[in-house]
């Protein structure tokens, strides 16, 4: 077999289009998923009652069912219930719900290991539960679980390949599309594999850079 990457050149626009879709899905999911996790972790950890139990149910459902089934449920199931949803929106919602559930659990581990003294100091200073969560608990909790958080976000980015199954024009969809036209499967998937790899490495690097700024307080030394 001879490799011939020149057959990909006419499709570079297709690859870029797919890459752009994967990128925006990932970026929006990362921000929205973490935001969702912050809310879910708060309600589950610090409130009791019906909301906490509902959100507990949501987390369990997401963590104990296949992502592709969640995606199909949103894309095929909701319209059947009379709620129209486009493929990209279904993809985005599925990804955000997925990352939100996993990240909420990761974050809770960080919250649970907050020293009792931190809560007490905040309370003695008059902070409400929500204020204490926001100003005292959250950042150190994130810093403790940051490596797991990075991995989870990357997993969701890679898992986004599945959205090609509902015809969202992402990177994997682009690869399938090109392969079906030029029959150069090896070349196409090699290139796309490398792009995913670069995305993952790039994401990790960016997260680490942000982490170094956000969690600068962890580096000791003299001021």
């Amino acid at each position: 077999m001879t490799l011939d990457f020149s057959t990909l050149l006419p499709y570079s626009g297709v690859i870029i289009e797919g890459l752009v879709t994967t990128l925006w899905l990932t970026v929006v999911t990362t921000f929205a998923g973490i935001a969702l996790a912050i809310v879910v972790a708060y309600v589950r950890d610090l409130e009791s009652g019906i909301m906490s139990r509902l959100l507990g149910g949501y987390v369990e459902v997401v963590r104990n069912t296949p992502f592709i089934v969640q995606l199909f449920f949103l894309f095929f199931g909701l319209p059947a219930l009379g709620i129209p949803i486009s493929a990209p929106v279904a993809a985005l919602v599925a990804m955000v719900l997925n990352l939100g559930a996993y990240t909420a659990e990761i974050l809770r581990a960080g919250i649970d290991s907050t020293a009792r003294g931190q809560h007490e100091a905040a309370r003695a200073l008059g902070l409400s539960r929500l204020q204490s969560y926001r100003h005292v608990v959250l950042v150190p909790a994130f810093s403790r679980v940051y490596p797991s958080l990075i991995s989870q976000c990357i997993i969701v980015m890679l898992g986004s390949a599945v959205v090609s199954q509902i015809s969202v024009f992402d990177l994997t969809y682009a690869a399938n599309f090109i392969q079906s036209r030029n029959f150069r499967g090896f070349e196409v998937y090699l290139v796309v594999t490398l792009i995913y790899l670069l995305l993952a490495v790039g994401m990790r690097r960016s997260f680490e850079l942000v982490g170094r700024r956000l969690f600068a307080f962890r580096q000791g030394g003299s001021a």
Binding site: Q118, A121, A124, V136, V139, P140, F215
Partner: peptide
Amino acid sequence: GIVFQSFNLFPHKT
């Protein structure tokens, strides 16, 4: 106001 044995400063704040 209260001051504790273990300081309990918020580590992420200056």
